[in-house]
Write a protein that binds this DNA or RNA. Structure first.
Lengths: 335, 335
DNA sequence: TCATCCTTCTACACCGATGTAGATCACCGA
DNA sequence: TCGGTGATCTACATCGGTGTAGAAGGATGA
């Protein structure tokens, strides 16, 4: 059996409640008593049982983070940032993977977690505006990331529109006119793909150009493999293009590989840009022009808001848009 | 206040214990009672309080996973595999990041976690043989990954020696004789770096060759950036080499970038190989020859062993070595 | 008819910590 | 000397489930 507070109390010759008071920094304890209790704790190797404390307090000190897949660098780096941010609040993070499946995302929202987590950070990929009622959860929740929901929940998001416009305008400024887009999701209306493609199209329109449908290549999910496949398909189609805007970095990296394999010079023949600024984007060959979505800010802000909600903040739902930054690298600018 | 078992019991007109029995599948319950209770649970939206159940059982259903950094692809992919494996046992995973600092690794081992986790999967990077006594923890623990400890703990590990020998022999078979190694940690004796370098050296010796000291480049930690820096240093040194064995993939990818930047042809002038087989290795340009350490097997085996320990298995400590696989790709074999 | 057995359900203590109320004692000022 | 005040500590109920023992009622078999 593990050492309990009772054991410590007995060992120190005080009541259990006094041990509890010592552990919680209650001020009115004689110095001599305190040291004696601390000595007993040390001697017995006592560790407080969190379940018991939680039972009283109704809190667990754990928050959940639900992401599609950790093996996607963007989400791994996001998880890193969230764990680090949570630590500053003394919170522990449990991670759930939804694999971007609508079913699993819904389960994640409604699973009887049995008060295991005090709050949830949720990065939905598959849910759509039609699922909005599902977001009205009992435990505090903050939506992370990419999608734009106007719903009954806090939301910390990437500035998809401004970021995509910025990178598009960068490509246009380089004189590129036939820009292929990788990673569209035809039929989707509110997802990241739709938002980013919409922003791309409107940037073109504002420049007096028309988006070219045959240069918009579907890819789902957004991975190196699908990016490579989309690029193969594009090349096979014979369609001419002088730039590629991949809707995220992994797509771009997959595409980059295929381009170079086919002897296409980047950026001379084709400029390539992505979105996310994962670590790898700085070290690919050529390094990748991309948009940094402000991951650390997103993580820190989301945790802050969540902690606020957990402490009873019931003001209006907030929608925070993180600051993006365009990083121009070799894949568009040469050396 | 949240709905408790008492509320459900009252609503269904039974005792709390009967509700408990229904939830736990106790067999001797009239069908009519069971449906009535289930209806009440549904009606009130009852969720069992895990803290309370845990208080009785002494279990939390949570295991910890301690890794250096999730933003390193290898560990992100490992975490993915661990979470997936844990799920099949109905376990939840909390992740801690040690940043590969000895201090934080020790804290991780000894932190009063307050019975929060039933067991711990620990991937140490900074700890050495001298810390072996610290591995004698109260909660069940399985060591993961890279380092070779002969200590008082279960250990599921990468076959560093055989894997490194295999990739070294592959380079030798290609006729390469001046093989640079990136990522050594001078002075270290038992770490992954030392083990892999030792295996490399002995493979050379077995082939009748001598390792060349000036081609052994330090890099710590193992990241793209440090890999790139080490390669810059190597090139600056003027030392000739016809192959690079990077002690992990991210180092290799950083080095690859620098090589190509300098106009070196890979693999014609210099062959490059890594270790880990992260997803990116398949999609870099050129794609990267590397050793797959058997991540999924490691994760699944480690979770299995841990679950065994948690259930009281106190047989001798096990040391499992995962099956590795050499993946030959463009960076050594051309197209 | 009665002891026995089985099914179904309940009362109660208990897991380990903490909030509340109150006991004890020294000390202070009137 | 006595009520009052503050410091220090303790007894006890309580958080929300579950293990244990056993009660109630019907069926079974001798």
């Amino acid at each position: 059996m593990a050492v309990t507070m009772r054991d410590v109390a007995q060992h120190a010759g005080v009541s259990p409640k006094t041990v509890s008071n010592v552990m919680n920094g209650y001020p009115f304890i004689r110095e001599e008593t305190r040291t004696r209790v601390l000595a007993s704790i040390e001697a017995l190797g006592y560790q407080m049982n969190i379940s018991a404390r939680n039972l009283k307090s109704g809190r667990t000190g754990i928050i959940g983070l639900a992401v599609p897949e950790l093996s996607q660098p963007y989400f791994a780096e996001l998880a890193d940032a969230v764990i680090t941010a949570a630590e500053t609040h003394g919170l522990t993070v449990v991670i759930e993977q939804t694999n971007a499946l609508r079913d699993r995302e819904l389960t994640t929202l409604h699973r009887p977690r049995g008060h295991l987590v005090d709050g949830l950070l949720f990065s939905p990929l598959a849910l759509g505006q039609e699922d909005i009622e599902h977001l009205r959860t009992a435990t505090p929740m903050v939506l992370l990331g990419e999608r734009m929901f106007h719903g009954p929940a806090d939301h910390v998001m990437i500035d998809n529109v401004a970021g995509t416009r910025a990178v598009t305008e960068h490509l246009l400024a380089l004189g590129r006119r036939r820009i292929a887009v990788l990673g569209i999701h035809p039929g989707e209306r509110v997802g990241t793909a739709a938002i980013r493609y919409g922003a791309f199209a409107s940037a073109l329109t504002d420049a007096g150009l028309e988006p070219i449908d045959r240069l918009a290549m579907p890819a789902d999910p957004w991975q190196r493999r699908t990016g490579a496949e989309a690029m193969e398909a594009l090349i096979a189609s014979g369609e001419k293009f002088d730039a590629v805007l991949a809707l995220n970095d992994t797509l771009a990296l997959g595409a980059l590989r295929v381009l170079i394999q086919h002897g296409v010079r980047v950026p001379d023949d084709v400029a390539v840009a992505g979105f996310d600024d994962i670590d790898e984007a700085s070290y690919s060959i050529p390094s990748l022009t991309t948009v940094n979505p402000g991951r650390r800010q997103i993580a820190a802000t989301a945790v802050d808001i969540l902690v606020g909600r957990m402490n009873g903040d019931d003001t209006e739902h907030r929608e925070v848009v993180a600051r993006y930054a365009l990083h121009v690298r070799e894949s568009t600018s040469g050396h």
